[in-house]
């Protein structure tokens, strides 16, 4: 005997994993993309944390050294020795070194007048400052992108999933909840994954942006203070 219009369904409880692995191909692609985005953004979150906290510590340490009353030439020479040992100069110390080097070089040439020397030193420091700022801000736009885009990607997965669910429904003579429910649940899981990827990225972006602002602010202040010291030196030295 054969039923003409009956629908047979077998009920089984659905776990989250069955939902993900049983999803349609398009939805699985979306899940994979979201997973990759989340992985990369977490990678950046940790890496930026290391870099930014190291930069903050370096600022505190160098400022302490600088204002301890040490001779500037000596400080420069110490840095040079460290550089020869293979330690990369970064942050505030780099600004200091570039500015001081330019200042000394211009002064030794002797030809330029005082204002030109000052201007040269300040220009060199501005360049170093913008390089340092660039270093600190690297990858942060990616976090912002993940934060704003991955909910949309999740939504796209959900829309595809629900479309599939309804297409599957079209072949059924009878629309029961058992037919639609797994498809919709599968679709909603994708939105959840998108949000899970987005939230840490947004939080980290906001936090790191303010951190970068504070560090670059202290660089700027330091550059100004240092150029005022140089100014004093060049006007008293003659």
């Amino acid at each position: 005997m054969h039923n003409i219009a009956g629908v047979h369904e077998v009920n089984e409880p659905l776990g989250l994993l069955q939902l993900i692995f049983g999803a349609s191909f398009e939805v699985q692609i979306v899940i994979f993309v979201l997973l990759a985005l989340s992985l990369i953004s977490w990678c950046i979150i940790v890496q930026r944390y290391l870099v930014l906290s190291a930069a903050e510590k370096a600022v505190a340490r160098f400022e302490e050294r600088f204002w301890s009353g040490i001779d500037l030439g000596l400080l420069y020479k110490e840095g040079s020795e460290l550089q020869e040992e293979g330690v990369a100069m970064a942050g505030m110390e780099n600004i200091f070194r570039v500015g001081f080097k330019e200042f000394m070089r211009l002064r030794q040439q002797g030809k330029a007048d005082r204002e030109a020397v000052m201007e040269g030193a300040q220009r060199a420091m501005r360049v170093a400052f913008s390089r340092e700022e660039e270093k600190l801000e690297r990858h942060l736009p990616f976090l912002a992108t993940v934060g704003s885009v991955s909910p949309y990607i999740g939504l796209l997965g959900t829309v595809i999933g629900i479309m599939n669910a309804f297409l599957g429904l079209a072949t059924q003579a009878q629309a029961t909840l058992q037919v639609v429910a797994p498809g919709i649940a599968e679709a909603l899981v994708v939105t959840a994954i998108g949000l899970i990827a987005a939230i840490p990225a947004v939080v980290a972006f906001n936090r790191y942006s303010s951190k970068v602002d504070s560090v670059t602010g202290s660089y700027m202040t330091f550059a100004d203070e240092f150029s005022s010291i140089l100014h004093r030196q060049i006007h008293s030295g003659s």
């Binding site: 992985l39 977490w42 979150i45 940790v46 890496q47 370096a58």
Partner: peptide, 26 residues
């Protein structure tokens, strides 16, 4: 401190952060 960090983790801390991210997702 910074030197130790750099020597331990190298390459601006990228390998370490990748490892941590992988662990977190796992």
């Amino acid at each position: 401190m910074q030197r130790v960090l750099q020597r331990l983790f190298g390459h601006n801390g990228y390998p370490l952060s990748a490892l941590i991210a992988l662990l977190l997702h796992g």
